[in-house]
Design a protein around this nucleic acid. Sequence first.
DNA 1: ATGACTAACATAGTTAGA
Length: 256
Amino acid sequence: MKIATYNVNGVNGRLPVLLRWLAETQPDVVCLQELKAPQEKFPEQAILDAGYTAIWHGQKSWNGVAILSRGFEIKEVCRALPGDTEDLHSRYIEAIIEGMVIGCLYLPNGNPAPGPKFDYKLRWFQRLNEHAAMLYAKGIPVILTGDYNVMPTELDVYKPERWVNDALFRPETRQAFKNLVDQGWTDAIRKLYPDQTIYTFWDYFRNAYGRDAGLRIDHFLLSPQVAPRLKAAGVDKQVRGWEKSSDHAPVWIELK
DNA sequence: ATGACTAACATAGTTAGA
C-alpha cells in the first residue's frame, strides 16, 4: 500500500500537475495540503475521473486539506484539530482507511518570528502533540503526515546558518517536533535514510531547485503499529521540475 | 538586508507562503 503527501499550493492551479502525478505514480492514499480553494471549488469530478474518492476541508484563499483514496473506503473522523474552537484555519483532516488512522496536517508557517504568527504556530503544534499523544495511547495503527513546516535537524536544510532565526527552524519549533517524535513516533524517511540529504521543498526564488537549495519539511510519522510495515519511502523530486509545479514535491511511503 | 517567485482574489496591488 502506497501512501503519499503533497502540498499542492493551489489545487485548481495545480490540477494538471496533480493529475499527471496521480496517473504516473498511482498512490493508494494521498494527503493534500494548501488547497487554496473554498469547499465548493474543490475539483471533485476531476479527482473522481482519475479514480479517487476524496474528503476535503476547504477555505477561501488559503490553507485547505484533503484525503484521496483509490478504492479503499474513507471513513472521516474529524476535520479540525481539537483544542481551539476559535481556530478557523482548515489545517487538519483525519480519516480511517483500511484500519489505519490517517491524519493529514498543514502546520502553520509561523513567520515572521517572533510575533503572533509564530505564537499561533507553537500553539497549533502543542495541540497537535496532545492529539498525537491521545492517538498514540490507543495502540492502533496511525499515520500523521503532511506539511509540518519544520526542518527537524541541520541535515534537513541546505544552509542551516541562514535559517536559524526562521520560524521553520527556530529552536522552539525543532523542540516541538522532537517532543512529538519522542512520544514514540517513527519519522519514515529518516528511519530508512538516516544520513542522506533529502529535501521535499525548494523555493521558487533564485533557482532554488536548480541549485538543490531545499528543505525537508513534509514528513510521515508512524505509530509503532505501522512502523514495522514500512517497506520503502521517497520523494518524487522530479515533479518539482515540471512546468507549473508546486514549490513542494510529493513524498510517499510504501507499507507491507 | 533585500528581493527574487507564485497563487488567490480581483481585475491593481495586497496578502501569504517558507
